[in-house]
Amino acid sequence: MTAGPQRPTLLSRLLGARETGLVLIILVLFVLMSFASPHFLTWSNMRAMTMAFSVEAIVVVGMTILLISGGIDLSVGSVTALSMVIAGLLFLSGVNPWLAALIAIAACAGIGAVIGFFVTVVGLHHFIVTLAAMVIARGLCLLGTGGRPLGLYDLPASVKWIGIGSLGPLPVAVAIFAVVVVVFDLLLRRATAFRLVYYTGSNPRAAAYAGIRTRRVVLMTTVLCSTLCGVAGIIYMARFGSAQPTFGVGMELNVIAAAVIGGASLSGGKGTILGAVLGAVLLSLVSSSLALLNVSVYWQDIIRGSILLAAVTFDHFLVSRQAAGGRG
């Protein structure tokens, strides 16, 4: 927990210490970059930047909730790609594109349910099950497309609109992302059902003793994460006008990194949507800044990894200091 004793409840932490810190870092980077590069503070760059991170950030939301419940999902990149491929294949075979999108999202939810089955009923670890799901989903993508991108040249403009259109100044994809963030942030802060997610992740035995059906909670968060991957896949498809079977390789690491920088813990029980999204903003801002400054892409990975390490180290010292004061 990042909040001090004066702000200990989940509710009063709209902007906890961590979120405030992240906002400050992001603002400083923002100011520095607007001096460092003339192209940074332009409308087109801002638009490109928000577009770049907003879809992935939808997946970050799902991952954060799953992490809070004590799970993890390595298959998010493949499942996002699979959503694209399923919708693309259905569309090419004559299915209405909207119906195709719904079927693809439902299929992703189904994958989540299968993962959840192996985790909660069979009793395997999330890490292993989703590692298998990652490979299988990628295999299905390649199998369905023969390894080549599916060109969806006849995609109606109404579908493309969700990927590249605008609502006034706001790109539609960003608007969808904003709605997802606000809704799930509110639910996670206030809703009874989502409070059980924290309990389950923090101490599954305590939750079970309180009469909480923890397996059901974990199943729910697993399905939710995969479903949000499905949604993200459709938005990507609409933006690219194609379905790319190799899309999203390595995405899981980015997404987990964002959630952890934002305060989620791999051991469950903590994390906020706002924090995770700020984590995603920070990582994305760093990437595009480095690109604008013509820094080699290889350096970008090194720098992003270092940020992750710094955030987790910071967390560790915060937690161990509190623990030293609290133990009798």
Binding site: M1, P8, T9, L10, R195, Y198, Y199, S202, N203, R205, A206, A207, Y209, G269, K270
Partner: peptide
């Protein structure tokens, strides 16, 4: 069996 990260009241 308490949730360590969660407030006492909850």
């Amino acid at each position: 069996a308490l949730c360590a990260e969660i407030p006492v009241a909850e």
